[in-house]
Design a binder for these strands. Structure first.
Lengths: 266, 266
DNA sequence: TACTTCATTTCATAGAATGAAAGAATATTG
DNA sequence: CAATATTCTTTCATTCTATGAAATGAAGTA
């Protein structure tokens, strides 16, 4: 009872109460580690990094490989091709993502800026949808890229309603994952967040230089939103006040998305 | 000892010897089912479809959710956002995919046709990379889409060296998954495959009407290749002989890829 | 309100997951 | 090339986890 060390670093949210399922948790940790590594890994490395025995790691890898989640060449393992259909399934079928696309499109058209949908995942956020405004420069689309929560309008609005303990965890995670310098504190983080009462966040030159953005959260049933919509613009083509003038638009878009989410449908 | 019923339908290849890891296998089956379903699923549906008890299914879903592999809204579960970083990791880091891109590019440029890399996954194949020739019509890019092995040049070349039993399984899987009509037989399938001695496959109007393609396998260390390169062209801009004339090009490209794969590097 | 269906928790038991240790295989070094 | 070190794989007894039946609670329907 109350084994707190069951899952250490990877498990997205330590959120509810972690049920058992030790072998599954361990497998997912191995899988997460393979992604983190960004290059093929040997069995012994994985075992060491994940803190489990060689036989256990090997068995896990074999099963993952059976399902295509992992590939093996010689003695090295890597993320396998089965993640592609999975991602496709998410992008095509997730009700939120599907509903978001036309809404983002509309906002992007109205404001002539890039509109994005981010989801919180653990102590990071990832881009799950984006529609470019008519600006000609569409940098490469980092769909699925892990971005910090500590920086950028989208990250900050996702933390706006976080508890002190959570900020603590986020700050720690950010500093250990390299998003922030070592020793980054929760207080520093808190000072970046939107003031109480503000329902949007603004950033300039935070995550990328020359980029302004504003973001509002997509309310969900829990108090803690895990999605947000952001508008982005290169600094040359918009000022802070320009972007902030679009906040009502954004708010409306988030509201519509939220309704679709909470509405009785499906 | 030789429990053969451990994993039933989903596990990509029944290939080697399936180690135990029951809970992990079951979790991956639930996950696969969520993808297949293409819409949010209730707990009881998943339990029934996957043939496991409610508590077990629930526990699995909770852990998957902790890691972001599954999302929940109200009482329905769906594929979660964590698959996006995973897919990104695959596309950016998989040595084969990374190595393939410039090679595909070169072939596409030389032949002015679309060059694609497919991977076999279970009894299907998926597109993992594509470079369009300068043809203006680039239909939507079905990266990660599950396509049949029984149809199209790419599918057929991947089956060229399959054993009779394997063809049997493939034929069965194709008919149950709807890729082929019910009652599709291994013999029918075999009659489509390239003649013995031929190292390429050709298709016209098979998977899509108006599309011609040729494919050659990427040899790997095992006798059974799981990747192939294909050239595709709309029927208006190429004849069968045009495409087949490019086979030597393709062969060379596959050879280079193969070397990179088997070479001692990394 | 009563009834049905579905989700969740509890709990005893079976059986799966585990790691130590031995045995292969492979790589490294002298 | 032999000898050594490292890594991978298998085996097996033990532990503890995963499991489903049944009870409980919640939600939806009639």
């Amino acid at each position: 009872m109350t084994v707190s060390s069951t899952h250490s670093a990877s498990p997205a949210e330590d959120g509810p109460k972690a049920a058992n399922m030790r072998s599954l948790s361990r497998a997912l940790e191995v899988f997460a580690e393979l992604q983190r590594a960004e290059r093929p890994q040997r069995l012994s490395d994985l075992a060491r990094t994940c803190g489990m025995s060689l036989p256990t790691t090997l068995r896990i890898l074999r099963v993952l490989q059976d399902f295509g989640m992992v590939s093996q060449t010689d003695k090295t393992y890597r993320v396998g091709p089965a993640v592609l259909p999975a991602a496709r399934s998410f992008l095509e079928n997730d009700p939120l993502v599907v509903a978001a696309r036309p809404i983002l499109q509309q906002v992007a058209t109205q404001t002539a800026r890039t509109a994005s949908l981010y989801t919180r995942l653990g102590f990071e956020r990832i881009l799950v949808a984006r529609v470019d405004g008519d600006s000609p420069l569409r940098y490469d689309l980092p769909l699925g890229k892990r971005l910090p929560l500590t920086v950028g309008a989208a990250g900050k609005i996702l933390l706006a309603s976080a508890s002190p303990e959570e900020l603590q965890q986020v700050a720690l995670a950010a500093s250990t994952s390299g998003h922030e310098p070592r020793g980054f504190t929760a207080d520093e983080l808190r000072s970046r967040l939107p003031a109480v009462g503000e329902d949007f966040a603004y950033s300039a030159d935070e995550r990328a230089t020359g980029v302004l953005s504003v973001a509002v959260a997509v309310p969900n049933r829990t108090g803690r939103p895990s999605e947000c919509i952001a508008l982005t613009s290169p600094v040359e083509s918009a000022s802070e006040s320009d972007l902030k003038a679009s906040v009502p638009e954004l708010r409306r878009a988030a509201g519509r998305l939220s309704e679709l989410l909470m509405g009785s449908v499906y």
